[in-house]
Design a protein around this nucleic acid. Structure first.
Length: 819
DNA sequence: GGCTGTCGCATTTTT
DNA sequence: TGCGACAGCC
């Protein structure tokens, strides 16, 4: 039970509130109820296309506007950067709020932020680097070689999955059951891997979450602080949370006392059990039921009104998903008419299917539909090939989602590895990646020797070079010198200059210049410089501070009776963390700040974090008006005027691997449900009698899912042949008389006007200049090397004789000028 | 060190 | 069938 509550917000009463009305305008009663819920935990079951994001963002805006929460008191968590960005964008369009002081982001992003702030308590260096999936795999391979793990019996890929899975379940090596010798071996590797990561100061994606969870669990003052701070926690796509993410949320929400969860803030979980399609990567729909039980949820609201599709499409979705058991129960409805029927097409072959699809698309485009509003969806990536070549041959522009993303490209990763070595010379993964790239005559032998030396000395490869250089020649020494010198030379330079310098000095540019395929790669490296530049702009490094026209507003917020009354019983902060309050202030904390010392990440380190946490779009011909090709999974959350779902065949969709169990079959059905609900106006379902798969012709039956769709909503473009269920059921008329009413096509999508905050120039208030001598309570006397940002985001690079060069947030760090 | 041939494998994926 | 990983050769 939340210890605090404010006057219960009766939706009807609030409708009269003059301040809230503009926010709430246009919301339906359920949406409005969700937005204006009183304090307490709530589960919002948000059907596809029911305005979920709008409710989430309006809720936050409403809490802020009415003084129920300060920006610093809100935590909103999503799965993807895209979703987090959208929330921020919409929110700032609704309210002139300084969005940067709010904790809105992905699970990984927020955990990262927390770990940087409390890196010492978490047992990490502040500049810990983040391993992506590739890095993690190569780290595991390296480890296997070093410890003579039989890679036949224990494939590195499997070990990687095992480790990731353990972390998702919140298990450290000692927590993993070891039934047999195989399990014991795996756990041993897990332990070795952990030791290696710790030694190198790197952290994988799962570790971000697990470490953050443990930080909260094991440090009472830190946990208490965040529990007090976050009065309102909002979770997007709750059905996709895994065990660890749920446990993390529980730590933030409250403590278990005598078997019961005692919470301080309010958690609003928004999700849709019918759209749970990520069980294979650890998502647990059961978290929804657990949430209701453990949080004693009193408020459950269903958003069932769909603003996206015509009713034939929704009827199909509803009828299909009704075949699933154990649903929380929800039915989509619309005020739109039936619209067009769902068209079903049977092709002789996958080739013919693709050809038909292209013809239909051309017709749609001819009728005035724009290509970007047309999507071709498929269950697995292998199916895109036929469609791509058909589109290509017909000269129809298309865009395939889900390829290599920007920060995953080899050349970009090479460049990032150099940058990481500048930040942390002990990052062996990065060391190995570029020690001989571009080639500089360092062969496998010398690397092996070096690794042996490092192992026996118990140090990093970087540090081991001195020991080996004598024997292995000067190449290794030269490489280390190159990196070390570069580090020296780039001190105090801005991010752009650092990267440009690195690109030259490393020889990357030169290397690619001489390569025949190198032009694209050089372009990408140049793009990396641009990415860094725009990152710097966004994060407020070296930029005029965004004016905060809300100073008064914030003051008002803080003083409003409602927010005063928010936490009447909360004790005053008396953490052994003097600066915690500063970070809790709206406006502060855009950068990762060590809350003890005020130390912030250097622009470079912050950029590296950004690169690891946000893989970047796969920017293939973006911006062009092209047909969108993607898997059904990738389409979740998107919508299109016309959707083609091809390959609707037994074995493909549902996938053959999913036929074995009820649970996985139901997940396939939910996947189909997701696909159907992407369509606004037109939905096409197609299947082929023969299909070339793995070089072999397969004869697939029509998908069982067809038999679960309502006849009245379908239009069979080809005669309906007996399907899977034909023995159990006699099919009716071959052609269902579907209405061809076109209806009004103009379903409006919610497109928030993005009102940018007015910028304003403010003179520097801190009075520091490059060269100023300053004193820090912890690091002692130092000299200012560089200054960036302004106002609350201002930071300084300071060189301390004993502690090296540090970036400090001036709003947090206690710096005094030395005369 | 780079190229070439062979082998094995082949849902879904964000961070 | 088609691609990525890896070993072996020049």
């Amino acid at each position: 039970m939340p210890p605090h509550s404010f006057a219960p917000a009766e939706p009807s009463g609030l409708a009269d509130s003059p301040t809230s009305e503009p926010l709430l305008a246009g919301l339906n009663p359920e949406q409005r109820a969700a937005v204006t819920l009183p304090a307490g935990h709530a589960l919002i079951l948000a059907g596809a296309g029911s305005g979920k994001t709008r409710v989430l963002t309006t809720r936050i805006a409403w809490l802020l506007q009415n003084g129920y929460a300060t920006p610093g008191g809100i935590l909103a968590v999503t799965f993807t950067n895209k979703a987090a960005r959208e929330m921020l964008t919409r929110l700032s369009a609704m309210l002139p709020v300084n969005v940067r002081g709010m904790w809105i982001g992905t699970f990984h992003g927020l955990c990262n932020r927390m770990l940087r702030a409390h890196h010492k308590a978490a047992g990490l260096p502040q500049t810990f680097q983040i391993l992506d999936t590739q890095d993690q795999l190569s780290a595991i391979k390296r480890l296997c070689k070093q410890h003579q793990i039989d890679e036949e019996r224990y494939p590195p890929k499997q070990l990687q999955q095992f480790i990731a899975h353990c972390k998702e379940e919140g298990m450290r090596p000692r927590d993993v059951p070891q039934h047999d010798s195989v399990a014991r071996k795996k756990v041993e590797v897990y332990q070795l891997y952990e030791d290696q990561c710790q030694r190198e100061g790197v952290v994988d994606f799962g570790e971000l979450l697990l470490r953050s969870y443990e930080l909260l669990r094991d440090h009472d003052p830190i946990r208490a602080h965040y529990q007090r701070r976050f009065a309102y926690i909002l979770v997007d796509e709750f059905q996709d949370t895994n065990r660890l993410q749920y446990a993390w949320l529980k730590q933030l929400a409250g403590d278990v006392v005598e078997g019961r969860l005692q919470t301080q803030g309010s958690v609003m979980a928004v999700g849709d059990d019918d759209q749970s399609i990520y069980a294979f990567r650890g998502a647990r729909v059961g978290n929804m039921q657990d949430f209701v039980r453990e949080f004693d949820v009193r408020q459950q609201i269903k958003l069932e009104e769909n603003y996206r599709s015509y009713s034939n499409i929704l009827d199909s979705a509803n009828a299909l998903i009704r075949h699933n058991s154990r649903r929380l129960g929800k039915e989509l409805r619309t005020q739109q008419g039936p619209g067009e029927p769902v068209r079903v097409y049977e092709a002789a072959s996958d080739l013919a299917e693709a050809q038909w699809l292209v013809d239909e698309i051309r017709q749609l485009v001819k009728d005035g539909m724009s290509r970007r509003e047309i999507a071709a969806l498929y269950r697995s990536n292998a199916q895109s090939r036929v469609i791509e070549s058909a589109l290509f041959n017909a000269g129809v522009p298309y865009r395939v989602y889900g390829g290599l993303r920007f920060f995953e490209r080899a050349e970009v990763k090479h460049a990032l590895a150099y940058l990481r070595l500048l930040e942390n010379p002990h990052d062996d993964t990065s060391f190995l990646r570029v020690v001989n790239f571009p080639p500089r005559g360092i062969g496998a032998r010398s690397i092996e020797q070096l690794q042996d030396a490092a192992r026996s000395a118990g140090c990093s490869l970087h540090d081991a070079v001195a020991a080996v250089a004598g024997r292995a020649g000067t190449h290794l020494g030269a490489f280390v010198a190159l990196v070390d010198v570069l580090r020296e030379q780039t001190q105090g330079l801005n991010l752009r200059a650092i990267i440009e310098r690195m690109l030259e000095a490393s020889g990357l540019i030169e290397h690619y210049r001489s390569e025949k395929e190198g032009a694209d790669r050089i372009e990408n490296l140049e793009e990396l410089v641009n990415a860094a530049e725009s990152f710097v702009m966004q994060e407020g490094f070296g930029r005029d501070a965004v004016a905060l026209p809300l100073d008064e507003q914030r003051a008002a917020l803080r003083q409003s009776p409602a927010s005063q009354g928010l936490n009447p019983e909360a004790p005053r902060l008396d953490l052994p963390l003097p600066a915690v309050d500063a970070a809790a202030r709206p406006g502060a904390g855009a950068a990762d700040v060590d809350l003890e010392t005020g130390e912030t990440l250097s622009p470079l380190a912050a950029f590296l974090t950004h690169a690891a946490l946000e893989a970047g779009d796969n920017q293939a011909q973006a911006g062009q008006d092209a047909v969108q090709l993607m898997t059904v999974h990738a389409s979740k959350g998107l919508e299109f005027d016309a959707v083609f779902l091809s390959g609707m065949e037994e074995g493909l969709f549902p996938h053959e691997n999913a036929l074995s169990s009820q649970d996985s079959l139901e997940e396939e059905r939910r996947l189909m449900y997701v696909a159907i609900t992407r369509a606004r106006r037109r939905l096409y379902l197609s299947h082929a009698q023969t299909r070339l798969l793995h070089g072999q012709t397969r004869y697939n039956l029509r998908s069982r899912f067809f038999d679960e769709l309502p006849e009245h909503a379908l239009k069979w473009l080809t005669p309906r042949h007996p399907g899977l269920a034909s023995f159990a059921r006699t099919s009716g008329a071959a052609y269902a008389g579907a209405s061809s009413a076109t209806g009004q096509f103009g379903l409006k999508s919610e497109s928030p006007a993005n009102a940018p905050l007015p910028a304003q120039k403010t003179p520097p208030a801190h009075g520091l200049r490059v060269g100023t001598a300053v004193f820090h309570t912890k690091f002692g006397e130092g000299k200012v090397l560089a200054l960036e940002g302004q106002g609350e985001d201002a930071r300084a690079q300071v060189q301390f004789p004993r502690h090296g060069t540090k970036w400090l947030a001036l709003a947090v760090a206690k710096l005094t000028v030395v005369e």
